[in-house]
Write a protein that binds this DNA or RNA. Sequence first.
DNA 1: ACTCGATACATCGGTTCCGATGTATTGTCG
DNA 2: CGACAATACATCGGAACCGATGTATCGAGT
Lengths: 191, 191
Amino acid sequence: MGALSPRCTALIRQNAGMLELAILGFLYDTPLHGYELRKRISALTGHVRPVAESTLYPAIKRLEKAGLLVRATEPGAVAAPRHVLSLTDEGRIELRRRLTEPDERDITDENRWFTVLAFLRHLDDAPAQAAVLRRRLAFLEEPASFFYDGDRALRAEELDDPFRRGVLTIARATSRAELRWLRATLESLDG
Amino acid sequence: MGALSPRCTALIRQNAGMLELAILGFLYDTPLHGYELRKRISALTGHVRPVAESTLYPAIKRLEKAGLLVRATEPGAVAAPRHVLSLTDEGRIELRRRLTEPDERDITDENRWFTVLAFLRHLDDAPAQAAVLRRRLAFLEEPASFFYDGDRALRAEELDDPFRRGVLTIARATSRAELRWLRATLESLDG
DNA sequence: ACTCGATACATCGGTTCCGATGTATTGTCG
DNA sequence: CGACAATACATCGGAACCGATGTATCGAGT
């Protein structure tokens, strides 16, 4: 686990999209070409937010430019020649960094959070994994209110709007389910 | 409910962010100045995804340019002069249009969906509201898989990765809770 | 022979997003 | 009296996103 090169530290920035995290996460297991990568990312998050090719290929280029992955051109087995992508050592370090210190948005936005969870096993260090789960736990434990009367948060029962009541109902049910899972998983990580 | 002006139809585009929807939604009730608008949007979605001022003000400008809202400068009651924003008739039509025909992403992405729900009462037409809920119902009813072994979707029990298992567990619990609410609400809208 | 769909990659241009930064005023706390 | 937070708006530049479009190959159907 050496230090990051200047090229790499230059890449450490806020708001590094969840797309990049997914690319790094999938390539951590095994080298893949772009098309296959796209299929896997689509399976993971595509039902919520489809991955445009015109978003994926520039993202791959960014990561290549940052020295996190390399391309090897292979003659096409089926069709056009493939660019097989594999992570560099720096790419592997960077993935672990992004998993260890996720951006605040990675914690609060469910889509991003699921992407973190999908690859968290790569951290391979139970205390570090537990620390990430605890950040999510802290976020879910502070009461989130959606609607206010002035400064006072409104409870579901106080809303006559059935749709806004739905937002609160669903958010609470979701939160309860995840809290249960988080506490159980933390227990088994700590124990 | 007249036809939309050319300026307005030009604005009908894909991927019209949920920020614009929130602006239109809040102003539908009452005129507000930008700063107050920001506080309300922050309460609604800020815990997941904070609203940068540098995103809000350009969005207001876009909507103004499109003829959906107008600004009136008021001498500042407390501090700097305020720009009180109010929807035009076209703005009101456009909000109802966006609520009646939400973008596919507004249905699939929970953050966007919650924004739709937060303002769906403005539609003021039970069958139209029910139609929107049914789109979400259809989306949640088709089984979503996150992880695959080749083409075969993996069930929670098949994963040894506790974090990926968590993704499936949480997604299912969330889905069940929302389906319950959707079915109950549809029944009361239809009945 | 022709079309079509899947594989595989790429660019262009427009929109949106957002961190950093700047301006100005008022009220509050020490 | 000075620092500081809150109110209130705005711009700039860079990054990210994405629809449209283009290129090319291969196999299956018709």
